[in-house]
């Protein structure tokens, strides 16, 4: 088991280095000149200014040397300085990432908590009313466009019924909780500030449901299919022949086997939630990475783009690692 973990870790580190090289190269070969994007038309027409500017950002050095500088900075935790905000990229990322992580994680948990039980119930009472409900929920979740769903939800629950608060992470007049993580849920709990905690939760409800909608559908369908398959297996009949309760047979024997494909999907889904929050963040004025990414891309802010891409790919790698490790926990045949 420990050998398996070490193997996976080594693979992950190698993948991260490879990813950094690929990202760096792609960023360099993207058509579009950051000089022209940053300097005004007049300054860009002066070769001396352009050359000075290039030298300042190291754009005059050969490619491999720039990658070397990038790597050595990376090792020291320095992702360079954003051309647009003139702040270290890492600081920017630390400022915007927690909002996205909080939103995506809540959406992810929501899809697990709804999707898995719904999928199990749909499989156990196949073709019953639960199954029909599950089918409608999945279909709606997967097929409704995010922006449409977001506007409809806002219109009904905020505009119409007034049950949910408006966009943003907190009330406009509230102060963000002081805390080390930037995750308002955690920070407010640690500070014992229950009022802010409640406000955060209230603000999370609509965007997380919107973001989770498609994932809930996918997880429900996958869980249902995997459970139906598991319930057909011989060991289920053996469990019944042993006189085990139906609940033990379903949750104790069928479910652990059915979870294997669900975990694969869950890993992919979490990474997608992190990367795919742009639309939801825009509609709900969520100050997260998605919006930061959008602004950086529009400004051809290469250090920021490279930094974000790297962070996203490392997140993908970490999630994958978590998936691989949970495989090993779930299925002994994978270990060794």
């Amino acid at each position: 088991m420990s050998r398996y973990i070490v193997q996976r870790l080594v693979t992950a580190v190698m993948m991260a280095i490879l990813a950094s090289a690929v990202i760096f190269l792609i960023a360099n070969f993207v058509p579009g000149d950051p000089v022209l994007a940053q300097l005004g038309d007049i300054a860009a027409s002066d070769p001396a200014t352009v050359a000075r500017w290039r030298a300042k950002w190291g754009l005059d050095l050969p490619l491999w040397e720039r990658y070397g500088i990038f790597l050595s900075g990376l090792v020291q935790g320095d992702l360079g300085t954003s051309i647009a905000t003139r702040r270290p990229v890492l600081d920017d990322i630390f400022q915007y990432a927690p909002a996205t992580i909080e939103l995506a994680t809540v959406a992810f948990l929501l899809s697990l908590v709804i999707g898995i039980p719904l999928g199990i119930a749909a499989a156990v009472w196949r073709d019953g009313w639960v199954d029909s409900v599950a089918r409608v929920v999945s279909l709606l979740g997967v097929s409704a466009p995010t922006f449409w769903l977001a506007f409809i939800m806002l219109a009904i629950f905020y505009g119409g019924l007034g049950w949910a608060p408006g966009p943003g992470r907190l009330d406009p007049i509230a102060f963000p909780p002081e805390g080390p993580t930037g995750l308002f849920l955690l920070d407010s709990v640690m500070a014992g500030d229950w009022e802010t905690f409640g406000d955060t939760v209230a603000h999370l409800v609509l965007p997380s449901i919107v973001l989770a909608a498609a994932t809930i559908g996918l997880i429900t369908r996958t869980t249902r299919a995997a459970m139906l398959d598991s319930l057909q297996q011989d060991y289920i009949r053996v469990s019944r022949a042993k006189g085990m309760r139906e609940r033990t047979t379903i949750l104790g024997h069928a479910l652990p086997n059915a979870l294997v494909p669900v975990v694969t999907l869950g890993g992919l889904a979490y990474a997608n939630l992190l990367a795919g929050a742009v639309m939801t963040e825009t509609v709900f004025s969520w100050p997260g990475l998605g919006r930061y990414t959008f602004r950086s891309a529009a400004a051809l802010d290469f250090p920021a783009i490279v930094g974000i891409t790297l962070v996203v790919s490392v997140t993908f790698l970490l999630v994958n690692l978590a998936v691989d490790l949970s495989y090993a926990l779930l299925d002994p045949r994978v270990r060794r």
Partner: peptide, 20 residues
Amino acid sequence: RGDRAAMVFQDPMTGLNPVK
């Protein structure tokens, strides 16, 4: 079942839960 009356099935390869 499983207490006073028990059953052994044909295929031992699939009768045991692989993850337990």
